[in-house]
Amino acid sequence: MAAATTSSPSPSQILSLYRSFIRVARQFPDYNIREYTKRRAIDAFRQNAKLSEPSSISEAFSFGKSQLDVAKRQAVVYSLYVPPLPSVMDLPNKPF
């Protein structure tokens, strides 16, 4: 799964990976999974911004890429089985 990359990813590659996560997160119809995917990606990128070692940067980058693949596949699966009722958290007019 983890493609062993010898060279470190460029800042633009990292930014593009981050944007892809935010984009794929929005595609989850499930409120909780959508929010989690977005939150977890943001926190992971914030955490990994502290990395300085090139090898750990590329390791984190390839792990991120494999996680993005999981998220892309699952966003499709979740979209195929949207429940008949949306979460109360997604209702435009909150009943309370």
Binding site: Q27, F28, P29, D30, Y31, N32, A75, Y78, S79, V82, P83, P84, L85, P86, S87, V88, M89, D90, L91, P92, P95
Partner: peptide, 27 residues
């Protein structure tokens, strides 16, 4: 494909066990 709010049930809601439910409760 995935906009969670595009359900015809959204406005109507459903009734289950005598309780009118307009959305899935927060879990």
């Amino acid at each position: 494909l995935s906009d969670p709010q595009n359900h015809e049930e959204t406005t109507a809601g459903i009734t289950m066990k005598g309780v009118k439910i307009s959305g899935r409760p927060l879990y």
